[in-house]
Simulated assay, not measured.
Amino acid sequence: MRYRLKPKRALGSELRSLYRSLNENLALALLMACREPERGVHLARRGCKELRALIRLLGGGAANQRFYRSLAAGLSAERDTAVMPATWQMLQANMPLLQSKAFHPVGHWLAELAETPAALDGRDAMFLGLAQEAEARCHREPEFEIPEGIAALELRVAWVYRRARRAQLMARKTGVADDFHRFRRRSKDLYYSLRFLKPLMSAPGRRLVGQLKALTELQGLANDVAVLDEYLAANADRLKLTQVSWNRLRRALIMGEQQLQAEVYERAGPILAAGPAQFVRTLKLSG
Rank of each mutant, 00 (worst) to 15 (best):
residue 196 F to R: 04
residue 165 R to H: 07
residue 163 R to A: 08
residue 189 D to K: 03
residue 175 G to N: 08
residue 197 L to I: 09
residue 171 A to R: 00
residue 195 R to F: 13
residue 195 R to Y: 15
residue 197 L to K: 11
residue 173 K to M: 14
residue 175 G to F: 06
residue 182 R to S: 09
residue 174 T to S: 14
residue 189 D to S: 06
residue 187 S to H: 11
residue 190 L to R: 05
residue 162 R to V: 06
residue 176 V to Y: 14
residue 186 R to A: 05
residue 196 F to L: 06
residue 186 R to Q: 13
residue 165 R to L: 09
residue 176 V to A: 13
residue 168 Q to K: 12
residue 165 R to E: 11
residue 167 A to V: 02
residue 173 K to P: 05
residue 167 A to K: 00
residue 172 R to Y: 08
residue 167 A to E: 03
residue 188 K to Y: 14
residue 174 T to H: 07
residue 164 A to C: 11
residue 191 Y to R: 12
residue 162 R to N: 10
residue 169 L to Q: 14
residue 175 G to L: 15
residue 197 L to S: 09
residue 181 H to Y: 12
residue 181 H to K: 14
residue 166 R to W: 00
residue 168 Q to D: 10
residue 167 A to T: 04
residue 186 R to L: 12
residue 159 W to T: 12
residue 172 R to K: 15
residue 184 R to E: 07
residue 177 A to M: 10
residue 187 S to K: 05
residue 158 A to V: 02
residue 187 S to Q: 09
residue 179 D to T: 04
residue 174 T to R: 10
residue 163 R to C: 07
residue 171 A to D: 00
residue 197 L to W: 13
residue 192 Y to C: 06
residue 168 Q to M: 14
residue 169 L to Y: 08
residue 169 L to V: 12
residue 167 A to Y: 02
residue 176 V to H: 14
residue 171 A to F: 02
residue 169 L to I: 09
residue 166 R to A: 05
residue 186 R to I: 08
residue 178 D to L: 10
residue 187 S to G: 12
residue 184 R to F: 04
residue 179 D to I: 02
residue 186 R to S: 08
residue 188 K to A: 15
residue 178 D to Q: 15
residue 172 R to W: 11
residue 167 A to G: 01
residue 163 R to K: 14
residue 181 H to A: 14
residue 171 A to E: 01
residue 171 A to I: 02
residue 197 L to G: 08
residue 162 R to D: 12
residue 185 R to D: 15
residue 190 L to A: 05
residue 164 A to L: 05
residue 183 F to K: 02
residue 189 D to R: 00
residue 169 L to W: 08
residue 160 V to F: 03
residue 171 A to T: 00
residue 180 F to E: 03
residue 164 A to S: 06
residue 160 V to K: 00
residue 178 D to R: 15
residue 162 R to H: 09
residue 186 R to G: 04
residue 174 T to A: 07
residue 180 F to M: 09
residue 175 G to C: 13
residue 193 S to C: 10
residue 195 R to M: 14
residue 186 R to C: 07
residue 175 G to V: 12
residue 191 Y to M: 14
residue 182 R to E: 15
residue 188 K to S: 15
residue 166 R to D: 03
residue 192 Y to M: 13
residue 185 R to T: 13
residue 174 T to Q: 05
residue 162 R to G: 02
residue 198 K to F: 11
residue 194 L to T: 00
residue 160 V to M: 04
residue 166 R to Y: 03
residue 181 H to I: 12
residue 197 L to C: 09
residue 171 A to N: 01
residue 171 A to H: 00
residue 166 R to K: 13
